[in-house]
């Protein structure tokens, strides 16, 4: 599937600031499941963005505007091809061999330990049960894929995805009380469950096919689509194939309608925009728009190109 992504961002200050440094993680990943066809990032006032990859493999850009200014704008335009039409198209490892496969993977790539060991306020160690309800526990002889899908469904049932929520509930305990949360909250809960099994799970942020923002069948006629936003989900190391995405907000497995941007231990590692400036210290206003457009499947685009 091919998508065009247009992301505009304006940082507006109440009074002029200077020495403004910005780091963004908005460009799509590039790997065997996802190709970056084109990418452009423009900044105003004029600045030269520098690209680099961080320790998790995320592509980020940074730039700075030193002279006084009240507003800074940047626009990212990318075209991306997603190739994971069928996420289950691989030779599975038998359940009895899965732990050995994992041990071997961790041995070959110790950096994976980050996604096993990391605990923090967003992904804390969880008790065996919450409010009298047991959390999904590891079971021998059941394929990891099945167990992860069940855990994702459990999160989905336990806490409703609230697309209208402006900010994360953050603390998982508060999430249980609230009964609903953002996509990031649900992702953190699933990650915390999986890490409790000592299984590698990582946080993903990215874009989704515009269809996800359309009103569902039960919505009144004439309901407008939700404004497009960044989405968050979870990737789990699946024996025999590698990272696969699971989205507890929609109880789905991520396929080629999901466009990955950044991965990390939790939301803290993937912040789309980090910036710092000198001025009066007042909080700026952040105005963002996102437009993801499906361009049709790869074949038709190629045909058009040819």
């Amino acid at each position: 599937m091919n998508y065009r992504i247009e992301r505009d961002c304006r940082i507006q200050f109440p009074a002029p600031v200077r020495e403004h440094h910005v780091q963004v993680r908005l460009a799509p990943w590039e790997d065997s499941a996802q190709a970056l066809v084109s990418l452009d990032l423009s900044v105003s006032p004029d600045a030269i963005p520098v690209a680099r990859y961080d320790g998790f493999g995320n592509l980020s850009h940074h730039f700075s505007v030193l002279d006084p200014h009240r507003a800074l704008e940047f626009k990212l335009t990318a075209e991306v091809e997603t190739r994971l039409a069928n996420p289950f198209d691989y030779a599975a490892v038998t359940p009895a061999r899965e732990r050995a496969w994992l041990a071997d993977s961790l041995h070959q790539a110790p950096r994976l330990w980050d996604f096993v060991y990391h605990q923090g306020p967003l992904t804390p160690a969880l008790p065996a049960e919450i409010g009298g309800q047991p959390l999904p526990a590891w079971r021998d002889d059941i394929p990891v894929l099945t167990q992860v899908q069940e855990a994702s469904a459990w999160v989905h049932a336990f806490t409703a995805f609230d697309p209208a929520a402006a900010s994360s509930v953050a603390a998982l305990t508060a999430l249980f009380d609230a009964g609903h949360g953002t996509a990031a909250d649900l992702a953190h809960l699933l990650i915390a469950v999986l890490r409790g099994w000592s299984w590698p799970a990582r946080f993903v942020s990215g874009y989704q096919d515009p269809a996800y923002f359309e009103p569902d069948d039960e919505a009144p006629q004439g309901t407008k689509p939700r404004p497009q936003t960044l989405h968050q989900w979870v990737e789990v190391l699946i024996p025999g194939v590698g990272w696969r995405g699971f989205d507890p907000a929609f109880a789905l497995v991520a396929d080629d309608t999901y466009i990955r941007v950044a991965v990390g231990r939790d939301a803290g590692d993937v912040s789309p925009i980090r910036h710092t400036s000198k001025g009066t210290g007042e909080t700026p206003e952040l105005i963002e728009t996102l437009s993801v457009t499906r361009l049709g499947d790869a074949a038709s685009v190629q045909a058009m190109g040819g």
Binding site: D54, G55, F56, L106, H107, Q108, P110, R111, W113, D114, V116, Y117, H118, D269
Partner: peptide, 22 residues
Amino acid sequence: LKDGVVPPELIYRGKDFRREIM
């Protein structure tokens, strides 16, 4: 870490291991 001389847990649970400089 691959050779098992230092346990990965010590590093990855260490407060001062800085992934940012990988």
